[in-house]
Computed example of a mutant assay.
Amino acid sequence: MQTDEENRRPSALVRHRLSLIAAAAILAYAAFVHYLWGWGSIVAEWKSIGYGTVALAIGLLVATYFVRAWRLYDYFPRETSGRFIELFHLAQVHNLLNIMLPFRSGETSFPLLMRSEFSVPLLHGTSALLVMRLLDLHALLAAGGLGLVVAAEQKMLAGLLWLAFLLAPIPAFLVKEPLLRALRPRLKGKLARILDGIVEGLPATLAALLRAWFATVLNWGVKVLVFAWALGLMGVGPLTATFGGAIGGELSSVLPFHAPAGVGTYSAGIVAGALSLGASTARDAMDVLARASINMHLMIMLSALIGTVLSLALNELRRLRAAVR
């Protein structure tokens, strides 16, 4: 006989609905790819550019996960001191949930995980995540802008505009304190406490912002360069189109319009970004671009899985070493 607690518990189908949606989408996507091109031709792309080259690209992508973890480690020094491996593991779980769950719903896991693992208040973790996502979007656009600078006729002017955009977070930070001083006297009670919680998640000093900004630029700079390089090896051109494809794919994963596991939306973002920056619309070129976009999606999925497995292994080694002591 079932208890009231068991009756109130949602069914397995309800509890795992997001995972089931993601799995169904991946299977449907796999069938779609096989129907259009066959998985043999997709894998042949990797063989044609060299498995060593593919491994290097994936290795560089995995390396960026350590940069992202260091950014968190530096952003929450009091809470995470001496616990980098645990934080790296948390960051990889959050990254995988972000990829697998639709409409950026995986983002909600970050403040929850930070609260449960490092005792970071929810509002603090949420506001910090918002700052980092704004830095991510800024750095992604700046990294992609390199392609426009390279292709520009007036490179000096384009370079100066790009540099001004790259440095924009600094003046944005400098106006923070005047804005807060003007806003604080107008808020009382709960609203004032909410504001204080949000402020706790903002960089406390310009040096802290610069460290987070540098790590963000390094992370996205490497990712965009690796993506553009890989797309070029797969036959996508011209150079501006490879940068456009890199930006388009990553924007699709940063913005809210994100399918489960990025199925369809990530590849569509690559195609849209490449076309917007000069890729040919000829039938053969579009076929090359479509296959390349799927291969890039597979690379990002594989790098996320490798990063998660690596974080699990490192975390287990940490536990074994702690047990020996």
Rank of each mutant, 00 (worst) to 15 (best):
F118P: 07
A215C: 14
P169M: 08
L97M: 04
M132D: 05
W162R: 01
L96S: 06
L90T: 10
M301G: 14
E177D: 15
T216E: 12
P111W: 13
M100N: 00
P77S: 09
L61P: 04
A215K: 03
I85F: 05
S252D: 05
S280Y: 08
A272Y: 02
L239F: 15
L129D: 12
L72V: 05
E107S: 00
L148F: 13
D74L: 11
P260Y: 00
L166T: 05
A91G: 01
G201A: 09
R321F: 09
V236I: 09
T53F: 01
V14G: 09
V224H: 03
P260F: 00
L97K: 03
Q2T: 13
Y51I: 03
G264H: 02
V199Y: 09
P121N: 08
A261W: 09
M1T: 07
T216Y: 01
A55L: 15
P185W: 07
Y65P: 10
G269D: 04
K188H: 07
E117H: 04
P77G: 11
E79N: 15
L87K: 07
A246C: 02
F88S: 10
P121K: 06
M296H: 10
Y73K: 05
S11W: 11
P203W: 13
E250T: 11
L90D: 07
V263I: 03
F66M: 13
L317N: 14
A322S: 04
L320W: 07
A192F: 04
A28C: 05
R83G: 02
L202M: 15
Q154A: 14
A24W: 02
A304Y: 08
T240H: 00
R17T: 12
P260L: 10
D287C: 11
V54Q: 13
T126N: 08
G262M: 11
A285M: 10
L251Q: 08
A204S: 15
G40W: 02
D74E: 15
M156N: 10
L129H: 05
N295E: 06
L275Q: 05
H94I: 12
G273A: 04
H297V: 09
F110V: 01
A230W: 07
E5P: 10
V33Q: 13
F88K: 00
G38K: 09
M299T: 11
F76Y: 14
L113C: 02
S81W: 10
H16L: 12
F88N: 06
K190C: 01
T281L: 09
A292F: 09
L202E: 04
L112Y: 12
A304S: 15
